Amino acid sequence: MTSSSTPGLARFNTLAGGGATAALHEVCASAAWVSIILSRRPYPTVEALLSASDAAMAELSGEDLAEAMAGHPPIGRPKPGDPASSREQRGMAGASEELRDEMLELNLAYQKRFGHVFLICATGATGEQMRDAVKARIENSPEQERGHVRTELGRINRIRLSRLVEEEKD
């Protein structure tokens, strides 16, 4: 992503409150994150918007993180009718039945251990890479895992925000 302004960024900067709120909720389900991003508009560059997203993510409380995570479906089960989760989890689309079953078991074990879905920036990752990540991270302490979740949410938000300000609207 370049650090220059784009027509999509200009559109985002001038989007009316309700439209901007709805667009940002598609990026991240945390109301606090959405509020922070909206409060800092207008953004001079895409990089400034992405940096604001990183800063907002760092400010989120545990409750805010839980709210953000609740907007993400388990790996291997994208939300029906949600093109973002389907696109992001494309690496599982062609996975074998064996790998899908293994991911379901791992997702359930992870959720039982940590109380929330396994969250990873799945864009560009294969099903095997996602499986290996959940296997490695399930051994983390809750504190370590919160750090991973915050990082992964930040990566996801950056990708989604970039897509939001790149899209041309008619």
Rank of each mutant, 00 (worst) to 15 (best):
L24M: 05
G147K: 09
A70W: 06
D101L: 15
R155D: 14
A48I: 07
L60Q: 06
I159V: 15
A70D: 13
V149F: 01
G127M: 04
A52L: 02
A136V: 07
I75V: 15
L24A: 07
G147E: 14
A10P: 07
L15M: 15
Y110W: 00
S53M: 02
R100F: 02
R150I: 03
I156R: 10
R87M: 12
A133V: 03
N107R: 00
R100Y: 02
A95H: 05
R146P: 03
H25Q: 14
F118T: 07
F118E: 04
V34H: 06
A93S: 14
M103N: 09
F118Q: 01
A84R: 15
A68Q: 05
I75E: 10
A48P: 05
S96Y: 03
I156F: 08
A125P: 00
L104R: 15
M57H: 06
S96A: 07
G17I: 11
G19H: 05
E105P: 01
A52S: 11
L119F: 07
C121A: 13
E67F: 05
V27Q: 05
L65F: 04
R90M: 10
A68G: 11
R150Y: 01
P78Y: 09
D132L: 04
E98L: 08
A109H: 05
G76L: 01
G94L: 06
V165R: 03
L106W: 03
A32R: 08
S4E: 15
P78C: 10
R131N: 03
Q89P: 01
P44R: 14
G127P: 04
E166N: 12
E168C: 12
R146T: 13
D101E: 15
D82R: 09
E167K: 15
A22M: 12
G19L: 00
I36S: 05
I138S: 09
K112E: 15
G17M: 09
M130P: 02
A58N: 08
M130F: 02
R100D: 10
C121E: 06
K112Y: 01
E139W: 07
C28P: 07
P80E: 14
V34K: 04
G19F: 00
D64E: 12
R146C: 07
E167M: 12
R100V: 11
D170A: 13
L24Q: 08
A84M: 13
I36V: 11
V134T: 07
S86Y: 03
A29F: 11
T21S: 12
L15K: 06
A122V: 03
S39R: 04
K169A: 13
N157A: 13
G94Q: 08
A136L: 08
R131F: 03
A31R: 13
M103E: 10
A48L: 05
L15E: 11
